[in-house]
Amino acid sequence: MASDRPVIVYPPDEQSGRRVRVDGTILGLAYSVRDVAAYMQEAGLQDFDEIDVARTALIEWRGGGPEVWTR
């Protein structure tokens, strides 16, 4: 991963999905921390789980942290 914080999780949309961008590429919508963990695994961090997602400094959470999934 190229930068210090290459993962951005955007604020929830109307359907409670949050866009996930890794190294400038939108990977899709996450509806839970589990979904974000799956995207992190796809990006090469195979051992990442929900706890890692909630604690890592690699993710920039916009519009609320890992506990926010509604507008």
Rank of each mutant, 00 (worst) to 15 (best):
M1I: 02
M1G: 15
A2W: 08
A2L: 05
A2G: 06
A2T: 11
S3M: 08
S3H: 10
S3Y: 12
D4I: 01
R5N: 04
P6C: 05
V7K: 14
V7E: 08
V7D: 08
V7S: 09
I8H: 08
V9T: 05
V9M: 04
V9P: 00
V9G: 06
Y10C: 05
Y10H: 12
Y10A: 03
Y10D: 04
P11M: 01
P11E: 11
P11F: 10
P12M: 02
P12D: 10
P12H: 07
P12A: 14
D13P: 08
D13K: 08
D13N: 11
D13E: 04
D13T: 15
Q15D: 04
Q15N: 10
Q15L: 03
S16N: 07
S16D: 09
G17S: 04
G17R: 02
G17E: 00
R18M: 01
R18E: 00
R19M: 09
R19G: 03
V20I: 09
R21V: 15
R21I: 11
R21C: 14
V22C: 11
D23P: 00
G24Q: 05
T25L: 05
T25D: 01
I26G: 15
I26A: 14
L27S: 07
L27G: 03
G28A: 13
G28Q: 13
G28L: 12
A30P: 00
A30Y: 09
A30K: 03
A30F: 05
Y31E: 05
Y31R: 12
S32L: 04
S32C: 09
V33R: 15
V33S: 15
V33C: 14
V33W: 09
R34T: 13
R34N: 08
D35G: 03
D35S: 12
V36E: 12
V36Y: 11
V36P: 08
A37V: 01
A37M: 06
Y39C: 04
Y39F: 15
Y39S: 12
Y39W: 06
M40V: 08
M40C: 09
M40K: 11
Q41F: 03
E42G: 03
E42V: 13
A43Y: 01
A43S: 15
A43V: 03
G44D: 11
G44C: 06
G44A: 10
L45G: 06
L45Y: 15
L45N: 09
Q46C: 05
Q46I: 12
F48W: 15
F48H: 10
F48M: 06
D49V: 04
E50L: 04
I51C: 06
D52A: 13
D52H: 12
V53M: 02
V53Y: 02
A54D: 11
A54C: 14
A54V: 06
T56L: 02
T56S: 10
A57L: 01
L58W: 10
L58I: 00
L58C: 01
L58V: 02
I59D: 11
I59P: 03
E60G: 11
W61S: 06
R62E: 01
G63I: 00
G63L: 02
G63H: 07
G65T: 13
P66Q: 14
E67M: 15
E67N: 10
V68L: 06
V68M: 03
W69F: 13
T70A: 15
R71C: 09
R71H: 03
